[in-house]
Amino acid sequence: MTSEVADDTADQDVFGGVDSHADTIHVAVISDNGGHLADAEFRTTTAGYAAALAVLNAHGLVIAIGVEGTASYGAGFTRAARSAGLQVVEVNRPDRSERRRIGKSDRIDAYAAARAALSDGPPVPPRTTPSPAYAPCTTPPAPPSKPAPQP
C-alpha cells in the first residue's frame, strides 16, 4: 500500500471482521458504506495479532471489529484488540443458506463478520429510567390479598 492511499483513507471510518482458527486468523476491512478495502491472513501469535491490528488501523478509524469465536479461537485476537482500545463484537458465523449462496472461505467469512459489525453499529447504552411516554401504560400495583380464613 502506498502512502498516498493511506493519506486518502486515514480519516474514514472502517469496520473489521475476523474469521478465527487454531493456527490463523483472516482479517477483512470494510468502509462505513460496506465497500471492501483489504483482507489478509495472519498467524495466531502476538506478532500476528499486532500485524492484523496494523492492517485495520492503516485503513482508517476502526469503529468496531466483528470476531467469530471471541471465547475460543478468536480469544487471543480479541484480547489484543481490546487492549489496543478497539471495540470487539461477537458475531455469529454466516447461516447455512448464505454459505450455500455465496460460498465458504476464510476471506468470505471475514468480510461477513465485518458486515455484521457494521450493521450492529455502536452499542446503545441501556436506559436507567423508563421513558415518560410509557408511564400511562404501567399497570397499577395489585391490591393486597385478603388473609385466609382461620379454621
Rank of each mutant, 00 (worst) to 15 (best):
I102Y: 10
R100N: 14
P94Y: 01
S105W: 10
I102D: 06
S97K: 14
R100M: 14
K104D: 13
I108W: 06
E90L: 06
D109A: 06
S97Y: 12
G85L: 03
V88M: 03
E90F: 04
Q87A: 12
D106H: 15
Y111E: 13
S97W: 12
K104Q: 15
A114I: 04
S97P: 06
A112S: 12
D109Q: 09
R96S: 04
V91G: 02
E90W: 05
A114M: 05
P94V: 00
R107V: 15
R93A: 07
P94F: 00
V88A: 02
A113N: 04
K104I: 11
S105A: 08
D106S: 09
R101W: 13
V89Q: 04
V88E: 02
R96H: 06
N92K: 13
L86N: 12
R99Y: 02
R107M: 10
Y111V: 10
V89R: 05
Y111S: 08
V91D: 01
R96D: 03
Q87F: 12
A84H: 14
R101V: 06
D95P: 07
A84P: 13
D106M: 09
N92E: 11
G103F: 11
E98T: 12
D95H: 12
N92W: 10
D95F: 10
K104H: 15
V91I: 01
R99A: 03
A84N: 15
K104E: 12
E90K: 08
P94H: 00
S97Q: 13
P94G: 00
G85M: 02
G85Y: 05
A84G: 15
A110G: 05
D109E: 06
E90H: 11
I108A: 05
L86S: 11
G85K: 05
R99S: 01
D109M: 07
R107C: 09
I108K: 10
R93K: 11
